[in-house]
Amino acid sequence: MAINSFYSKGNNSNSVVDSMIIGRNDQRGFLRMDVNATLTFKFCGADDVYEGASQDLSATGLRFVSPQKVSVGDMLDVCMKPGIDITPPLETTLAVVRVTQTNDGQYEVAGVLQQNDPA
């Protein structure tokens, strides 16, 4: 099943996903969960790997902080490893939609998770 149809608001086949859908008074389609985990990322097509710290995650997006400068429109290959060994890492491509420089010189990056086709 394609990820877009799985997470679609109109698809009522998954009660877990349905429970994450939030009220109509918010523009977001899914609840954001605070997730504090170390992640690594690289610019698509590049070899250099950078580190960041996740802030929150939803069914369609991710927000993290990093000292590495990132720009809106960049595509990043992201790997986020949870603190529990039985949970597999999240490996995805992120389309950057917002970047804000913080007071301490880091960058807060928000992006939309892209569908990765299985190999």
Rank of each mutant, 00 (worst) to 15 (best):
F43S: 07
S19A: 12
L62S: 01
R32N: 09
D104K: 15
V97I: 14
A46D: 10
E51F: 03
F41S: 07
G111P: 03
Q115R: 12
D26R: 06
L57G: 04
L76M: 13
N12M: 07
G111Q: 01
V17H: 06
N103A: 13
N25I: 06
N25E: 15
N103G: 10
S5Y: 03
S5P: 00
M80K: 06
V49A: 07
D26K: 09
M1I: 08
D26M: 00
D117K: 10
I86L: 11
Q55M: 09
T60Q: 07
R32T: 06
S15L: 13
L90P: 01
R24K: 15
V112L: 08
R98G: 03
T38H: 06
D34T: 12
M75P: 03
A46N: 08
Q68H: 10
P89G: 08
F43C: 02
Q27D: 09
G61W: 01
E51K: 11
S71F: 02
D48K: 07
L39I: 14
E108A: 14
I3L: 15
N116A: 09
T93V: 14
A46G: 03
M33Y: 14
L31F: 10
V65F: 01
S15P: 05
N4S: 15
P82I: 12
E108R: 14
G52T: 01
A59R: 03
L94K: 01
T92Q: 08
C44G: 05
M1W: 07
S5C: 02
G111E: 01
V109M: 02
Y7T: 13
G105W: 12
